[in-house]
Simulated scan of single mutants.
Amino acid sequence: MFGLTRARRTAAAVAFGAAAAALPTAPSAVAAPRPVVGGTPTTTAEYPFVMQITDATGGQFCGGTLVAPTKVVTAAHCVVGETTGNVRVVGGRTHLSGTDGTVGEVSRIWFDPGYTDAVNGGDVAVLTLAKPMPYATAAYVSPTGTGVYAPGMTGRVLGWGTTGKNGGSSDQLRMAMVPVVSDPECRDSYGSDFVASDMVCAGYPSGGVDTCQGDSGGPLLIGGVLAGITSWGNGCAEAGQPGVYTRLASFSSLVTEQVLT
């Protein structure tokens, strides 16, 4: 989360060398960012459904979740304006600097037709891959699975985003635990920008743990299912400014339509 745009996508054209870090610059960002902040290193062996979204040259700019062998759920703001020829999905690669895993080409990009920007909701997209990924998939929340959003429920967030203020992206996948925040508390933080029907907040009142730039599109897992998509926020890991995630239950039927086509 950062700046006035508040979306958590990283600029795509970032090359990794042996010790290089991804640049934390987002389109139209006006303030310095911070990745999963306060998280711990993990692996794609532990979370095989977590995908990197990259440009054609391999520069990672978002995350995603494999929900079927050829279907990846991510954030709309990650792919609006992109073409299939310029987007790749990388699975089974724990380190951004690695060469292992599977690189998949994208044959179709779908995003919620009502999407205009992350703050106005509908921040959900589905990428269709040209070939199946050989990794375990994640179950996603059903339209009636709203119980996972109960305040205090523990969520897991994952990504390769920046890990501190003015810092670079993490070369290794990271995971953090964050509690779900009640809708009234989230509205206190974000006012009318928070749309409860489309969004859910997660984070600690004191901050310190959060998703950040480069984590956009990655998963918020609650109760063992994909319940949210990293979307936006003010700053990263700041007190009183929880992360905002797409409330996937509200878009589950639309996602299922894409998964079945």
Rank of each mutant, 00 (worst) to 15 (best):
G64S: 07
R174S: 05
G145I: 08
A130S: 15
A13G: 08
G81A: 11
C62H: 01
N234A: 04
V126D: 13
G233R: 01
G39Y: 02
P48V: 13
A125P: 14
T137G: 05
T116G: 09
C212G: 15
G159R: 06
G203I: 07
M199E: 15
V80F: 10
T10E: 03
C62A: 10
T163L: 11
F251W: 01
M199D: 13
A150Q: 12
A75K: 09
D193R: 15
T42N: 03
D123P: 14
S252F: 10
L254W: 15
T43Q: 04
P184I: 10
G161M: 00
V141H: 05
R187H: 10
M175Q: 13
Y245N: 08
L248F: 03
T70S: 11
K165R: 06
G207L: 05
F49T: 01
A76T: 03
M133R: 06
R8A: 14
V87W: 12
G159Y: 01
S250L: 06
L173H: 04
G38M: 02
P48L: 01
Q172K: 00
G59F: 07
R174A: 03
V209I: 12
T211R: 02
C186V: 07
R187S: 14
W232A: 03
F194R: 13
D188V: 00
A68M: 01
E257H: 08
S197Q: 15
A32Y: 12
A21I: 07
V37A: 07
L221Q: 05
S189A: 15
V209S: 03
G228I: 02
